[in-house]
């Protein structure tokens, strides 16, 4: 472990990977319970278009991807509300359009100096100090927002209709959650890439839901699964020279299987 931490790039990767994975895992609990798990996958496809646009315009690809992802997340909401589409259909439309935009831009540009594969498959080991700061700030913004709106998000997730009759501003919170998801997807893209980012949102949350008896437990277990996956995944990838993104997701998949098996051994809480 000492030799692993002696490298500055590994220190940055561990810090950013841990923080981003935990952020994804906590937000993922809400998304999975709201049956919105695939929104991460959809927005990840959209960010491909955003990254391509950023590269074409010589702007910071992550920032352009962030703006495109936020507008796309709000677009998915609008399509659900206005066109009366189911969430999966709205996600399908927006994500396909985002991907199509990316393909067209790549075709128009001919080629990019920066390797698009880095964005598709993730390259956490190449994260620079500036990107670590950006990840740190954005992750903290997402986590602090979740803490501040925790009670509302929990009620909204459990029973949106009753939440509305309790004065919770459901529409506003839906938008806020969509924006947080877009930010988190862009963050996750740096760790595991566009193709695997939804795994960071879905697998730790799904693993936690196998055994959690309360929302509080679900968030704690999901964060723990994500944290262990990030540290173990990066460590294994360092020593075995495996790709970091695939290893992190594989470890979280393994933890999901373990908790899935553990579910049958979990007894109900005793009467007080």
């Amino acid at each position: 472990m000492e030799s692993l931490l002696s490298y500055a790039f590994m220190q940055r990767a561990l810090l950013a990977g841990l923080l981003i994975s935990i952020t994804c895992a906590i937000l993922g609990v809400f998304l999975v319970l709201r049956r919105d798990a695939m929104i991460g996958h959809g927005l990840a496809h959209v960010t491909f278009g955003g990254v391509a646009l950023g590269l074409l315009l010589y702007l910071t690809p992550l920032l352009v991807a962030l703006v495109v992802a936020v507008f796309s997340a709000l677009g998915i909401l609008k399509l659900k509300e206005r066109a009366g589409l189911h969430g999966d259909t709205a996600i399908g439309i927006i994500s396909s359009l985002g991907m199509a935009l990316g393909i067209l831009l790549v075709s128009v540009a001919g080629s990019f100096n920066v390797d698009l594969f880095g964005y598709l498959f993730g390259n956490i080991l190449a994260i620079d100090p500036e990107e670590v700061w950006m990840a740190l700030i954005l992750a903290l913004v997402v986590l602090i927002t979740i803490v501040l709106f925790y009670q509302e998000f929990v009620f909204l997730t459990f029973d949106p209709e009753s939440a509305r009759t309790s004065g919770v501003r459901v529409r506003r919170l839906d938008k806020l959650l969509a924006i947080l998801t877009a930010v988190t997807v862009v963050l996750g893209m740096k760790v595991v890439g566009i193709l695997l980012v939804s795994a960071l949102l879905v697998i730790p949350a799904a693993a936690a839901l196998q055994v959690a008896r309360s929302f509080k437990e679900a968030f704690m277990i999901s964060a723990a699964v994500a944290g262990v996956s990030a540290i173990a995944g990066l460590t294994i990838s360092f020593y075995l020279d495996w790709p970091a993104s695939g290893t992190i997701v594989a470890v979280s998949g393994l933890l999901f299987l373990i908790l899935f098996q553990a579910r049958s051994y979990r007894k109900p809480a005793p009467e007080e």
């Binding site: 319970l33 803490v147 501040l148 709106f149 925790y150 009670q151 509302e152 929990v154 009620f155 459990f158 029973d159 009753s162 939440a163 309790s166 004065g167 919770v168 936690a208 839901l209 196998q210 959690a212 008896r213 309360s214 929302f215 509080k216 437990e217 679900a218 809480a269």
Partner: peptide
């Protein structure tokens, strides 16, 4: 049946309308 909400958490949701932001219990 596996929705991760404890009975206490479900009842606590009813207090939201009484509380001001950030609605801590």
């Amino acid at each position: 049946p596996y929705f991760p909400a404890s009975v206490r958490e479900v009842v606590a949701m009813g207090l939201i309308s009484l509380k001001r932001f950030p609605r801590l219990l």
